[in-house]
Write a protein that binds this DNA or RNA. Structure first.
Lengths: 127, 127
DNA sequence: TCCGATACGGCTAAATTTAGCCCTACTTGA
DNA sequence: TCAAGTAGGGCTAAATTTAGCCGTATCGGA
């Protein structure tokens, strides 16, 4: 059972200097945090996750789930049942992310009133 | 003295639901953390910052500095001297980011040995 | 006067990430 | 037998971010 999986071949080097860059490499991706959080909260199956995060395209959720598996944050269990069933769970390593996410999320919530207006007008790329 | 500044017009909505998304909106950008950290450490002038982060192109550093100003994280002071001088400083709001950055950076450093190999091979976009 | 340093913007192309459509395969229930 | 739900990949195009080059202007020193 050969495993074929086309990956995007990076051309620019990944930044690994500072610890926050490491964190961001893991956490970056439009829905990864949501996925991690949902899985942490017990939403384990792909279908449930899709329904939980309806704004995300199914396609992207799937690829980001795959990335999280590759990064050792979650594990995927395939139950070889009659109606195929899949479940994701945080690894022990993935669990270590939770308190960090909590801290950053708290910062965001604390300053939401300041941030929301700024972020809606401002864009990431100022030219 | 009209201020003209071409901004990139976002077409997709910004995600603001969760606090971590708010945090990420601010922190995202290849060199923003480095900039924030350097400024926090007292490296205030554009030229110094460029020398401190030599891997970054001058162009991108400048635009990201501008973004941080627009986001209220830093302030830019222009000294109308004989040889023009500019300095950046963290705002009080920007200071609130520091402990959060410390936490995430610590997480990264703590797990560097696990992360480095994973992140170098794996790419963000699994296709 | 020419070189280097200060500080900055315009512009194009490359790299990367997301959106969104289509298709496969299997199972259950109507 | 058809519809719906399970899970997931291929593919293209759009959106977004970075890289990198060129040009402006001022000042100080050799």
């Amino acid at each position: 059972m050969t495993y074929l999986c086309k990956m995007y071949e990076r051309k620019l080097p990944v930044e690994l200097e500072c610890g926050l860059h490491l964190f961001m490499e893991v956490i970056n991706g439009k829905w990864k945090i949501n996925l991690i959080w949902c899985i942490y909260k017990g939403i384990k199956r792909p279908g449930e996750l899709h329904r939980q995060i309806p704004k995300a395209s199914r396609r992207l959720l799937d690829t980001q789930l795959k990335q999280l598996v590759a990064q050792g944050i979650i594990v995927k269990t395939i139950f070889e049942q009659k109606p195929l069933k899949v479940e994701y769970e945080l690894t022990a390593f993935g669990e270590t992310l939770i308190p960090v996410i909590v801290v950053t999320a708290q910062w965001g919530e604390t300053h939401r009133q300041i941030l929301e207006p700024l972020l809606q007008s401002t864009t990431t790329t100022v030219k």
